[in-house]
Design a protein around this nucleic acid. Structure first.
Length: 960
RNA sequence: GCCGUCUUAGCUCAGUGGUAGAGCACUCGCUUCACACGCGAUAGGUCACAAGUUCAAAUCUUGUAGACGGCACCA
């Protein structure tokens, strides 16, 4: 068989996926065993607007490793793929396209046409990521692919909404919400991020108190008369001298005017424009400075309104001036104050964050930031601007478009979270579900977050998404129903209009764990008004059993950024609607950072495209590199890491290439593993089984990096560096038994590697003689031959041969020490040596049995074994574990100085260890308190070192 | 402000009570008949710092410093 000298990943990547998929290997139905235990994972649905990034690649790798591993073990395995409709993102893309191509806005074409175009956009561009997943080798069941706006999933969304509404868990009401003026929609708390601005300002505004008598004299009034002018400035400066930068003329300029007007109260704000919507000023009732001002009235500048001074415990006397302007319609805390004091809620902004008519004619239609400037200017002109401080401020911004979010009073839909929160808390506290990997810190963070959970804003002012199934009559009465007809029926036949809003994308994602398995809510709820016809449409007739079969799923693999946004909601909603756990375990992956150690992002331009890595190093190399990252750990991207595994792939390729040389007549078969012959055979079989056991253990603990490391070193160090080298002559001589054995070991190794490197292993497995579906796990005996259905090696503890491993260790040590002598004494690679070894009879027997291999690998022509060494002085010597000794006569070649140095180095190294051992063993506490085993271990080691040291010293003496 | 994570060889990272590990880079030597994406042999670390617990600490506890993350506040 002709095999290329180097592995070309592209060729293998193009050859297998289509066959795997079309043969149904990815579907659970491929499993013929009726008693098979299920194993299921649902994918965190990527956005239809997205393309594959490194985070996906990492998570998909983990999910595929688990899926392939379990599938090979004979589980009825399902990894269910899908995509998310990504409300705002799609809305924005479609609107952008519309503007670019036709210079139209969504409003120009209307809702129906816009939604039609959004679907068209999704059809055209929404498959990018699914195509990329095929390249990744993801063994997902495409026949079960779901989209959050599929008919069945949309039905589920409606039914969930209706039930929550009927149970009082969903309500509509006026609340302060996060408003994005650019997207013109409300956002949930989780979609708002913080941005620190160092150039923020804190404005101190003076609010005149109406009807108060002018005070006398040109200085500030005594305490009790309010915080004014210089006195307040001074006290503030004292509090925070560094920040007290006065950018504006001091108060004196405005003094005379004010003195005529009377007393005033100074408030500090970062958002002066909101003063137009102030409906009170609040002070702490316990604050001596302001106590008697409560109840007085302020003439609010720039408006002709008068607002009261109220006393409220919320106000912190220590902060700012101790007096707070209250804008109930534009600030969540002010809103609460407003409720307590029955204050007017005056909305002064439009949905695009321009000021509205209520802000006054001078401000109407001004952008909020322009309005801010104008308010400040006008205060200054009026002499009411006390001062402006530089102030570092953290602003809420829209996580997607980075626009500053405006808190605004708005009528929205909310989900009450208290009862759902309690269900989730019960699950984690009583049952430990989900189990997080790594456990710390996610379990703690998740629990703490739940405990502080607030209600969830679910309405969004978009067109792309699940329109809220609520209808209104002319009087504003609400009818929540599945269809318009049902709503009309409920209203007694009135004319209704449907709520224009859609639901938060995460609302439908929250149902993902069960809506993907065909749950629509129809059958369970037995709702009236759903015709038999509509039920049929929403049922997935042939997959009805999926929900019962695959839920709870076994594990959820996701990033820590959506634990709250998605994971928690799935747990709660799944518990609520199906009364099941959504998943047992959650693997929280770390973040793949750019080369600069910062998260990858377009703005930083530090992103690494997985597809480019696939092209450069191959899919398999990229996958196994990603799997080699410790679970949950962040990692700086490093091409060299992938290169390492590209090299590994090539190593596997070439090892296979070697095993196939001269292999005529040989064949893969497990029988070849149970009849080991030589020491090397027993050793490699032992190593293989140990590796298989450890790999299974590591995977079951989600320690993918441990599994990768075990496989890497087994394959490269044990199999390639030693076993192949030891068996080379036999293989090259065309020994069929030896060939069959090495191919069988290789075949087992390929199976172990397959979950990580699916393409390479399939490519090679198909080339091995004797591979067929006979090697499949019993659950797949009828399927066409593929390594992906081969039985995953469990590893047999009985096949572990510690004696063989230790004997082999002696052979390896002998060879290594000879090589060391060769290298350090500058003996040419081609020169043959003569090896003399003194050892006990058992070890001699081991060396004798492996004489040919030792000679070959150490490049020696003679091996002389005896009880004691009898060699010329001109020999290089070394000691071996177990009291054995080694000498290589180097007549005419030896450099005595160098040999002395070599021996002294060895003695010095041993001496360091001996000192430590002696110290420990002479410590009575240690000998008394440490476990006996440990003490004995150190004593044995001490004896070994003493023996070796004395031998080395003797050898050194001979040289002198 | 609260909570958490990280700090180990030049670089990127494993290891979490009992003699410090890997890959890459470095040094030396190899056209050894699978592989130079290779083979062989070296070198390289008071495991951030300090105190404590323990016979024993890179590993557990506390504190300090630096890096990062989450949450809250932000008049």
């Amino acid at each position: 068989m002709e095999i290329a000298k180097a592995y070309d990943p592209k060729q293998a990547e193009q050859s297998h996926y289509e066959r795997w998929e079309s043969s149904g290997f990815f579907t659970p139905e491929i499993n013929e065993d009726p008693a098979a235990v299920k194993y299921s994972i649902v994918i965190p649905p990527p956005n239809v607007t997205g393309s594959l990034h490194m985070g996906h690649a990492l998570q998909h790798t983990i999910m595929d490793v688990l899926t392939r591993w379990k599938r090979m073990q004979g589980f009825r395995t399902l990894w269910l793929p899908g995509t998310d409709h990504a409300g705002i993102s799609v809305q924005r893309k479609v609107a952008e396209q519309l503007r670019k191509d036709e210079k139209k806005s969504p409003l120009d074409i209307g809702r129906e046409e816009f939604v039609r175009r959004a679907w068209a956009w999704k059809e055209e561009y929404g498959n990018t990521i699914t195509e990329q997943m095929r390249r990744e080798g993801a063994s997902v069941d495409w026949s079960r692919h779901r989209f959050t706006m599929d008919r069945e999933l949309s039905t589920a969304v409606r039914n969930v909404f209706i039930r929550l509404y009927e149970e009082g868990w969903i309500y509509k009401g006026l609340r302060i919400v996060n408003w994005c003026p650019k997207d013109k929609t409300v956002l949930s708390d989780l979609e708002v991020k913080e941005e620190t601005r160092k150039d923020g300002k804190l404005y101190y505004l003076r609010y005149p108190i109406s009807g108060s008598p002018p005070y006398e004299g040109g200085v500030a009034p005594a305490s009790g008369d309010g915080v004014v002018l210089s006195s307040s400035s001074e006290s503030l400066s004292e509090l925070n001298p560094d920040n007290a930068v006065e950018n504006h003329p001091p108060a004196e300029a405005a003094g005379p005017l004010l003195r005529k007007e009377g007393r005033f109260l100074t408030v500090a704000t970062t958002r002066p424009e909101t003063m137009l919507g102030d409906t009170a000023v609040a002070v702490n009732p316990k604050d001596e400075r302001y106590k008697d001002m409560i109840g007085k009235i302020i003439a609010l500048p720039l408006t002709n309104r008068e607002i009261p001074i109220v006393g409220d415990e919320y106000v912190d006397p220590e902060f700012g001036t101790g007096a707070v302007k209250v804008t109930p319609a534009h600030d969540p805390n002010d809103y609460q104050i407003g409720l307590r004091h029955d204050l007017e809620q005056l909305l002064v902004m439009n949905e695009d964050a321009t000021m509205n008519a209520a802000a006054g004619t001078e401000f109407e239609d001004l952008d909020r930031f322009r309005a801010r400037e104008k308010v400040v200017e006008m205060f200054e002109e009026l002499g009411l601007l006390e001062r402006v401080e530089d102030y570092e401020i953290t602003l809420p911004v829209c996580e997607r478009c980075k626009t500053v979010v405006e808190p605004i009073l708005s009528d929205q839909w909310f989900v009450k979270m208290d009862e759902m929160r309690d269900m989730a808390l019960d699950l984690i506290k009583k049952e430990g579900v989900p189990h997080f990997s790594p456990q710390v810190p996610h379990e703690k963070v998740y629990t703490a977050w739940l405990e502080n959970l607030k209600d969830w804003t679910i309405s969004r002012q978009l067109w792309w998404g699940h329109q809220i199934p609520a209808w209104y009559d002319e009087e504003g009465n609400v009818y929540v129903a599945t269809t318009a007809e049902e709503a009309k029926e409920k209203s007694g036949g009135r004319e209704l209009t449907q709520d224009q809003d859609v639901l938060d994308t995460w609302f439908s994602s929250g149902l993902w764990a069960f809506s993907t398995f065909g749950w629509t809510g129809d059958a369970e709820s037995g709702r009236q008004g759903l015709s038999a016809n509509s039920y049929q449409l929403s049922a997935i007739s042939d997959r009805k059993a999926d929900l019962g079969t695959f839920l709870p799923t076994d594990v959820l693999v996701t990033g820590r950024d959506i634990i709250f946004l998605w994971v928690s909601r799935m747990i709660m909603l799944t518990k609520k609607f199906v009364d099941k756990k959504a998943f047992e375990d959650v693997i929280v992956t770390g973040t793949v950072l750019g080369k600069d150690g910062k998260p990858m992002s377009k703005s930083r331009n530090n992103g690494v495209d997985p597809i480019e890595m696939f092209d450069k190093f191959g899919v398999d190399a990229t996958r196994i590199y990603l799997a080699s990252i410790a679970t949950g750990a962040d990692i700086k991207w490093n091409d060299i890491g992938v290169e390492t595994y590209r090299n590994f792939a090539n190593k596997i390729w070439n090892a296979t290439r070697f095993c196939l040389l001269n292999s005529e007549g040989a064949s893969v078969g497990s029988a070849n593993l149970s009849l080991p012959d030589t020491l090397a055979d027993r050793w490699i079989v032992s190593r293989l089984n140990k590796t298989a056991i450890n790999v299974n253990n590591a995977l079951s603990r989600y320690e993918f990096h441990t599994a990768v490391s075990l496989l890497y070193h087994f394959f490269w160090d044990d199999f390639c560096d030693w076993y192949i080298e030891l068996k080379k002559d036999e293989i090259n001589a065309g020994d069929i038994a030896a060939s069959s054995r090495i191919l069988s070991i290789l075949e087992q190794a390929l199976r172990l590697l397959h979950p990580f490197m699916p393409y390479l292993t399939e490519e090679l497995w198909q080339k091995l003689p004797g591979t067929s579906n006979q090697l499949h796990n019993a659950a797949y005996s009828k399927a066409g031959q593929t390594i992906m259905l081969a039985d995953f090696p469990k590893g047999d503890p009985a096949a572990i041969d510690e004696r063989a491993e230790s004997e082999m260790q002696s052979v390896i040590e002998l060879i290594t020490k000879v090589r060391n002598i060769r290298a350090e004494m500058n003996i040419k690679a081609g020169d043959m040596l003569s090896i003399h070894a003194a050892a006990g009879t058992e070890m001699q027997a081991v060396f004798t049995a492996n004489e040919a291999q030792i000679k070959k690998l150490a490049r020696a022509d003679t091996l002389v074994l005896s009880e004691t060494l009898d060699v010329p002085k001109a020999s290089a010597k070394a000691v071996l574990t177990g009291g054995a000794e080694l000498a290589v006569p180097l007549e005419g070649l030896i450099d005595f100085d160098k040999e002395r140095e070599r021996l002294q180095n060895q003695i010095a190294k041993l001496d360091v260890e001996l000192q430590r051992l002696n110290g420990q063993l002479s410590n009575a506490n240690f000998v008394e308190k440490a476990p006996e085993e440990k003490v004995q271990e150190l004593r044995d080691r001490q004896a070994e070192i003493e023996q070796q040291t004395s031998t080395l010293n003797l050898n050194l003496k001979v040289l002198k």
